[in-house]
Simulated scan of single mutants.
Amino acid sequence: MIGYLLVQPELKIDWTKMPTYNTIMAVAAGVGLVLVVWFGRKLLRGDPMEHVDGWALAFGVLGALLALTGLHMTLTWPLAGQGFPFDNIIFGEPSLAFGAMLLAAALYLWKRWTPPQGAADRREHVARVAGPISLFAFAMGLACFGIAAAGWTYTLFAAPPQEPISGAFADMPMLEATFISGLYVLVGIGAVVFPFALRARGGPAATVTGVCWLVAGVVFALFGALNYFTHIGLIVNTM
């Protein structure tokens, strides 16, 4: 969603100065979170995983989408054209970080994956490989908490009345601020707990991470899909 707007009924936006593509970013991020949970569950259950080409392809596709769009948004700030520079940080930088990690996972699975035979040995192997990058995931989890706090503090994420569906709640800006900030909190909790889940090789920490990322992933994907309609409608109504 575009950040909070103080709008009038005759709102007009020059969309050539504010390209918006956080629709595909939300869908890719949501599906990526779901796939990470699915992959982790297979590892913890000891399911056969000798052939991981499909996982490498999935992580690679989603990682490329998130890294490219996140990098462009991070470096060029396209949403600053008409007064929303904070949205470039909120959407661009987390997408870039998650996309880079998915690309790294895809490359590893494609080139270096040699799973041990036993389930316990496999968990040990993955924990050792993913341990260092989990510190970055932990730090980005803290960043998600910062984004959520900013959303609540400054009442971000509210849609203008010209946007279909979401715009019906334009007079309740805290509603959507709470909704999106809540999703960032879920992602943040999962990311902060992730290193402990690796260290414990599963257990309650893995359950917390899995539930948080699964719920947030499903909601992000569905919300991003919905935004294909709502954002198109906003463009039509304001161009």
Score class of each variant (00 low, 15 high):
Pro116Ile: 08
Val37Thr: 00
Val31Tyr: 05
Leu226Thr: 03
Val27Asn: 01
Trp213Leu: 14
Leu222Cys: 12
Pro115His: 06
Arg123Ala: 07
Leu6Thr: 08
Ile24Glu: 08
Leu44Ser: 09
Leu11Gly: 02
Pro164Lys: 06
Arg199Asp: 12
Trp110His: 15
Gly92Glu: 06
Phe196Met: 10
Val236Thr: 15
Phe169Lys: 08
Ala29Asp: 01
Asp53Trp: 12
Gly63Cys: 06
Ala119His: 06
Leu109Asp: 11
Leu96His: 04
Ala143Tyr: 11
Leu79Arg: 03
Leu5Gly: 00
Ala120Ile: 10
Met174His: 15
Val37Pro: 01
Val126Ala: 09
Gly40Arg: 00
Ile24Phe: 09
Gly60Lys: 07
Leu96Arg: 04
Val218Cys: 12
Ala225Val: 07
Asp171Cys: 06
Pro160His: 03
Met25Phe: 06
Gly167Ser: 09
Pro160Arg: 04
Leu214Glu: 14
Val126Ile: 08
Ala127Val: 00
Pro160Leu: 03
Leu44Met: 11
Ala221Gln: 03
Ile133Tyr: 13
Gly190Cys: 07
Leu43His: 02
Gln117Asp: 13
Gly30Ser: 03
Ala67Asp: 01
Ile189Asp: 04
Met1Lys: 00
Gly224Val: 02
Phe39Gly: 02
Lys111Leu: 15
Trp77Tyr: 10
Ala130Leu: 12
Arg45Gly: 07
Leu6Phe: 06
Pro9Phe: 02
Pro115Gly: 07
Gly92His: 10
Met1Phe: 01
Arg123Thr: 04
Leu186Gln: 04
Gly46Asn: 08
Thr230Arg: 06
Val236Leu: 15
Val192Phe: 10
Val185Ala: 07
Leu222Lys: 03
Ala56His: 10
Gly217Ser: 09
Asn237Met: 13
Ala159Trp: 01
Gly81Gln: 01
Val36Ile: 01
Asp87Ala: 05
Ser181Tyr: 12
Phe229Thr: 09
Ala137Thr: 14
Ala67Gly: 03
Trp55His: 11
Glu50Thr: 15
Ala58Asn: 09
Gly92Gln: 05
Thr238Phe: 13
Val36Asn: 00
Ala29Asn: 05
Ala56Gly: 11
Thr207Lys: 15
Leu183Ile: 13
Thr114Trp: 11
Leu214Ala: 15
Lys42Ala: 12
Arg112Tyr: 15
Leu234Arg: 08
Val126Arg: 02
Phe145Leu: 11
Gly188Trp: 03
Ile189Gly: 05
Val219His: 08
Asp53Gly: 13
